[in-house]
Design a protein around this nucleic acid. Structure first.
Lengths: 181, 181
DNA sequence: TACGTCATGTAAGTCGTTACATGATTGG
DNA sequence: CCAATCATGTAACGACTTACATGACGTA
C-alpha cells in the first residue's frame, strides 16, 4: 500500500487537504497501521491529480492560509475498489526495540531495564490513545481497525510488564546471592 | 535499523554467509521484526567490509558452490554496541489488511469474510512457526523476542476469531430478517 | 530432465525520508 | 512577541525492491 493508494482511500471517506491527510496518517485513526509525511503526500496528490483520480478546489478565505481541498473522482473510486479486490500483502512489523533486546545480555541490567521501562510507557501511551479514539469512533470499520491495534498493544503491554517483573526478580536474586558471599 | 546494522548484529552471534543472513532475516528467528533481501544484504556486506566492520574468508570446497564467510571485527563489534546505546526508534506496524478492512462495508460480506478467513489462517501459521522456534530456542534474548511475537499474534488471532464469529452471527440475523419478509 | 536449494551479485527503478523554504494566523 | 498550528511544496538523498544474470549440486 503506497502513499498514493493511502491518500485515495482516505479521500474516499471525505474531501480534505493534504495537511488533513497527513494528520490522519501520522497522528490519527490510521497512524497505527500506516505512515506518511508531507514529503510523500503532496507528490502523491499531484500524481493522483494528473491521473484523474482526484481533483482539488482552491479555497481562498481572507485571514486564512489558502488551501487545496481534494476530492476523489469516480475514476479514482473505481481504481481504489479495484485494487481492494486484490488480496492484501502481509502485515509488516519492524521493531528496533526487539533487535536491541537481542543483545540484552551484552548490556548492563540497568541499561536494559531502562529500555524496557521506556517501551512499556510508550506502549501504554499508544494503547491509551487507541482506546480513546475507539471510544469516540462510530464508523464501524475504523472501530475494527482500532480494536485490532488495541488488542495488539494490550498483549504487548502485558508481555512487557510480566517480563519486567521477572527481570527485577532475577536481578534481586542475583544480588542476594552475591551479598551472601 | 538499516540492513547494514542488521547484518552486523546477526554476525555478532556467529560467522555466516550472506545467504545465511537472508534466511534468518526473511524466514528465521528474526523475520517477525525485520526484513532483508539479497538485494540489500550483499551491498550491505560490501559496505561493512569496506568500513572494516566485517571481514570474510573465501571458502572453496570441491563439489560445493564457493562461499564467503563473514565475521564481525572488533571495530564492527564496538560500532554495533555503540549504536545499541542510543535509544531505539519506535516499532513500525504496517497493515494492508487493516487498510482494506476500512472498506468492509463497501465489499460484499462474502469478500470480506474471505479476507478475514485468510488473515486468520495466516496469523495461525505465523503463530505456530513462532511457537515452534520458541520451543527450540535456548538463547534467552531470542526467547524474549520470539515470545513478544507470540503474544502479539495470539492477541490478533483471538481478536480476528471473535470478530469472525460476530460477523457470521450478524450475517445470519440479517438473513433471518430478510427471510421473514 | 527438471526442479529445488545453495550461493553471489548487479542494475534499474521505486519509494520514501529529511531537511529546507515560505508564510499566515492564533493564543498565551 | 513567541510558539504553535495551519498550510503547501521541493530537492537531495538514502534505502530498499524487483528483476535479472549466473552457475553448481542433489534428488525425484
Amino acid at each position: 500500500m503506497n502513499v498514493r493508494t493511502l491518500c485515495l482511500g482516505i479521500l474516499s471517506f471525505r474531501q480534505m487537504t493534504g495537511y488533513d491527510i497527513r494528520k490522519l496518517a501520522a497522528e490519527g485513526n490510521f497512524s497505527h497501521f500506516c505512515e506518511a509525511n508531507y514529503g510523500s503526500i503532496y507528490p502523491a496528490l499531484s500524481q493522483l491529480t494528473k491521473d484523474g483520480f482526484v481533483v482539488f478546489t482552491d479555497e481562498v478565505i481572507d485571514g486564512k492560509p489558502p488551501r487545496k481541498i481534494y476530492s476523489i473522482t469516480d475514476k479514482g473510486r473505481s481504481y481504489l475498489f479495484n485494487t481492494l479486490n486484490k488480496q492484501p500483502g502481509p502485515d509488516r512489523f519492524k521493531s528496533e526495540f526487539l533487535f536491541y533486546s537481542l543483545f540484552q545480555d551484552k548490556m548492563s541490567p540497568e541499561d536494559f531495564r531502562k529500555l524496557l521501562v521506556r517501551k512499556i510507557a510508550e506502549t501504554r501511551d499508544t494503547l491509551e490513545s487507541l482506546e480513546k479514539a475507539n471510544d469516540c469512533c462510530d464508523h464501524q470499520p475504523s472501530h475494527f481497525a482500532l480494536g485490532y491495534g488495541v488488542a495488539m498493544n494490550k498483549a504487548v503491554l502485558d508481555y512487557l510488564k510480566n517480563y519486567l517483573a521477572s527481570f527485577d526478580h532475577q536481578v534481586k536474586e542475583a544480588d542476594n546471592l552475591s551479598n551472601e558471599d
